[in-house]
């Protein structure tokens, strides 16, 4: 196999919590400048996989590579440096609730990019809020927002530094279909216009087929199927088939 353009390589990663085996030998690659979606049932370890990729969870076994750096072998201080190349939108948004929306989005500007100029911060924050369709909410606190709004602010915060790799954990879950589309369009846009590598977890199979260059299907701790949408659509794996049939049968109603 030629790994010419892999930006992240996950190799034989295992992770268990006590007796609960979550990841059981994951092999998967993510290509630079591409959109890849990870799909799979609830609770199969998609979020855990993301967290191991950025080093906030340590796998029990196996290795993860970012370009030619082994993420799993880095010290804490080296990890902090490495993460400057990443943006991570959490499934639960994980906004800092002691800070306003504006301060939340400005946080990585200051801490990751070292931008101290307030006007520059303000300009970039308001541009981001524009992108996610929530202009003018800089002064609000996370507790004043709806779940969907928080989620989008989380996406904005991960995107504001325009990092090489974006990890979006279910960015559209809990949004209405129209807003979900806005976020999907945003993913396509930052991928095409800025060339950022986008890796997302989603339960929206239809969207994933439309926007992805590659789909990886996680099942029972392993990658059950992976490839371009066309290939995955023709998969013989029973669980993959079931997933696809269920989500597309909705269209025929």
């Amino acid at each position: 196999m030629v790994l010419l353009s892999a930006i992240i390589t996950v190799s034989d990663v295992h992770k268990a919590f006590g007796s609960l085996v979550v990841l059981n030998g994951i092999h998967v690659t993510f290509e630079e400048g591409k959109v890849t979606t990870v799909i799979g049932q609830s609770g199969t370890g998609k979020s855990v996989l993301f967290k191991t990729m950025i080093g906030i969870m340590k796998p029990d076994h196996g290795e993860i590579w970012y370009r030619d750096t082994s993420v799993t072998r880095l010290s804490d201080i080296e990890l902090i440096e490495l993460r400057r190349s990443f943006g991570y939108a959490f499934q639960g948004a994980a906004l800092f609730d002691s800070m306003t929306v504006g301060e939340n989005i400005a946080f990585p500007l200051r801490e990751v990019l070292g931008i101290r100029d307030r006007n520059e911060q303000r300009r970039r924050v308001s541009e981001m809020l524009e992108w996610i369709g929530l202009p003018g909410i800089e002064g609000k606190f996370p507790a004043e927002l709806s779940g969907g709004m928080r989620k989008r602010v989380g996406v904005a915060r991960s995107l504001v530094t325009k990092p090489d790799v974006l990890l979006f954990d279910e960015p559209t879950t809990g949004l209405d279909p129209v807003l979900g589309e806005t976020i999907n369009d945003l993913v396509v846009r930052v991928n095409k216009e800025l060339g950022l590598t986008c890796i997302l977890i989603t339960h929206d199979i239809q969207a994933s087929f439309r926007i992805s260059d590659k789909i990886a299907f996680l099942h029972e701790g392993r990658i059950a199927e992976e490839g371009p949408p066309k290939e995955v659509a023709e998969s013989n794996h029973p669980m993959v088939k079931k997933f696809i049939e269920n989500s597309f049968s909705l269209l025929e109603v």
């Binding site: 804490d76 993460r83 994980a94 906004l95 800092f96 609730d97 801490e111 991960s158």
Partner: peptide
């Protein structure tokens, strides 16, 4: 418990 600490780490802050 709300992953804000994890979020901070992902933004290169100890």
């Amino acid at each position: 418990v709300t992953e804000q600490i994890d979020a901070m780490e992902t933004m290169s802050v100890d």
